[in-house]
Design a protein around this nucleic acid. Structure first.
Lengths: 131, 131
DNA sequence: CCTTTGTTATATCTTAAATATAACAGCGTT
DNA sequence: AACGCTGTTATATTTAAGATATAACAAAGG
């Protein structure tokens, strides 16, 4: 599992971990059913504490990206509650769009950025392998 | 100045303050040249400490939304470095789009959200009053 | 002068984040 | 049965950020 943490970032390590795993799913580097490394293993790989990884896994579970199987440990399992996700996304975009609007960034400019990012990820289906 | 702070939020007060002022500019409730309340005045209005407001003003100044005039205090002054703003926006959108992609939110869905938010703000020009 | 402006300095309190040990229950393998 | 692995929980400590409280300063205006 390729994880890169910026220890000089102002963003919390566990939060960076969540983000990277979510982006990994979007990039279809990780798929539904894939097991995540154990909290101890990943902590050792990255060079951080076990509890920091555990917190990331817990948050990912609460947000519906991971389920825990006693036998296999943490497993990618993406919940698709689109209505809820849309509402959350809108709130998240609100300030970003305000900033953009202040800087004379047009609606079309943002559309282009969005398209670029969707191109970086899959086809829009996080699976993209056609499951 | 209408500012609403959620004291139960996990987002820092000074950060909420910055966001609200930026959204106020985007909504064209505040315009270039408008003076902001003094740090002591606004702190008193909201019921928070002077230094919390001062931190917000300092951040807004560093990010190019405010300039400080010794005579008039803090004044709205929006810098329009579009190239830089585009780069920052893209980074900010990266995780959001990843989350959206995981939830089967399409490119078009995001475009619609963006359009909705631009509609809530101005015409794309933060001035919109035609200055 | 006096007031108001932003700014700086110091100190304190609270909370979040990260680390360190340690232990537990569930499950598979040996 | 014993061992090793999983996530999980508990407790404690350290560090850093956020917020508050007092206090003082230079600059500008009335």
């Amino acid at each position: 599992m390729y994880i890169e943490i910026d220890f000089n970032s102002d963003e919390a390590i566990y939060s960076q971990l969540c983000d990277q795993i979510i982006m990994g799913i979007a990039c279809s580097r990780y798929h539904d059913g894939d097991p995540l490394p154990s909290v101890r293993q990943l902590a050792d790989d990255i060079g951080i504490n076990m509890h920091t990884v555990n917190k990331a896994y817990t948050v990912l579970r609460q947000q519906g990206y991971v389920k825990v199987d006693r036998r296999r440990g943490a497993v990618i399992s993406v919940e698709t509650d689109k209505a809820n996700a849309l509402a959350e996304l809108k709130e998240s975009l609100r300030v970003d769009i305000a900033r953009a609007s202040c800087r004379n960034i047009s609606r079309e400019d943002v559309h282009k950025l969005v398209d670029q990012l969707y191109a970086e990820y899959g086809t829009g289906e996080y699976g993209m392998t056609g499951e």
